[in-house]
Each structure stands twice: as structure tokens, then as C-alpha cells.
Design a protein around this nucleic acid. Structure first.
Lengths: 106, 106
DNA sequence: TGGTTATTTTGCCATATCGCCATGATTGTG
DNA sequence: CACAATCATGGCGATATGGCAAAATAACCA
């Protein structure tokens, strides 16, 4: 694997990593329905606001969500809606795994 | 976020995490072309075979690849081809980010 | 059986990630 | 101006991850 290839997969991994956390997946799922401010998400997730803020900065840095400041609050929304296909694939893998487990049991 | 919701997103994150590494993305990409044994992949990646083996076990555990032993070697192949859509989405996010950077510069 | 190759597993260490707390910055309100 | 609310950031301890090297397995061949 040469340096250029390495760089290409590093860039991809950076994006995938940004979604590789249950809380961040929850946030993406929620933002697919409507935009939300940090405090709303913190309330839903049940974590400290600073924690959620950090998760959001990771998603934003990866170009998955975007932020818009209105008054004292910052509203986040999905910037790249294609991540929803992404998630439906994850769902498909899950289904497949469940099928596999059933077969293994029977 | 109640316990059931938490569990659902944990399961999703488990799958996304399995792909959240440049080497594992490279492996998935390679396996999308043809099946490969561990030593071939280790050679391509340029890492220790034990390291590649561990990456493969993570992918297998997530239900993304499957292993088939033939003789003394183990051939891995893509078990859930839908992850390719997954990756094309990642690619789309990358494109989008590049566009954004261009706009920011100009 | 003994030796060789392919693979997995385990141990260990370096590094990265996570989540809370405390702090600082910005904005809205009285 | 003082004060409260919303966010972002830096620090810190706990935990998870990544990679190599060595040991354990498994298959193959002489």
C-alpha cells in the first residue's frame, strides 16, 4: 500500500470514525428528522452538554453536520443526507447477522 | 434515551466501528474485487500477519466478511456486499468536503 | 514423526477515545 | 452593569484500540 493509497483510506476512515459511536449515531438519526440545538440533544442523550458538544464538533469536523448560531443557541442539522443510506446499510448488516444467529441456533 | 434505544444504537455502532480503520477499509475494498487469504492481505497492507488477522476477526465478528478455510490458508470474502454503498456514501461526503474547502479558499 | 507454513491468540506497551468537571466566551435578560 | 443560559475548550482519570512479538494451533510434506 503506497503513500497515496494510505492517504485515501485515512481520509475515508476519518469520516467513518466520526460515526463510530452510539451517541453520535443517535444524534445523526435525530438530526435526520429535524435540526436541534445542543441542549436539546444533551437532554435526549442524557449526557453532559460538554460531552454532546464534543461529539457534535467531531461530526462537524468530518463534514457530516453543520452548525448555525441563532441567538444564544447553536442549531445543528444534517449536512450530508447521504449518511442515511449509510445507516440503512448498517441496518441491513444487522438483519443479516440476526438471520445468521437464528440459523446457528436451529 | 431509554435502554432499548441505547442497545439499538450500540449494535449499530458496533458495525460502524468495525469499518472505522484505514486498514480495514482497505481490506473491504480489496475483498470487493476478489477473495483473499490472510497472507496476501498482509503483504498488500504491509503489516504483520497477526495484525491483519486481528483486523479480519473484527470485520468477521461484525458480520461484514466471512472466512473459508481451504488447506492451510483461510480465504476471506465480503459477506455483506451492501457495505459498498456504505463506502460510496463516505466518498460522497469526501467530495462534499473538498468542495467546501475550495469555496472557503476562494 | 519432525519440520515447515499459515493462521490465530496472548501479552505487553503506546496511543487514542470517552465523559465529566472546571473554565472561558458569547448572548440574552433584568 | 450584573446575572443567567448556551456552547466550546482544556484537563484529567478510566477505558479501549492498534501493532508487534512470541507462543499456541492446524495443515502439509518429507
Amino acid at each position: 500500500m503506497d503513500a497515496a493509497t494510505r492517504a485515501r483510506f485515512d481520509a475515508r476512515a476519518h469520516i467513518v470514525k466520526a460515526m463510530a459511536h452510539p451517541t453520535r449515531l443517535f444524534i445523526v438519526d435525530e438530526l435526520s428528522r429535524s435540526e436541534r440545538c445542543v441542549c436539546e440533544l444533551a437532554e435526549m442523550v442524557g449526557a453532559d452538554m460538554s460531552t454532546v458538544s464534543k461529539h457534535l464538533s467531531i461530526l462537524k469536523n468530518a463534514g457530516i453536520v453543520s452548525a448555525q448560531k441563532r441567538g444564544s443557541q447553536v442549531f445543528y442539522s444534517l449536512y450530508t443526507p447521504c449518511v442515511l443510506n449509510f445507516l440503512s446499510c448498517v441496518e441491513a448488516v444487522l438483519e443479516e447477522n440476526l438471520e445468521e444467529q437464528k440459523k446457528a441456533i436451529s
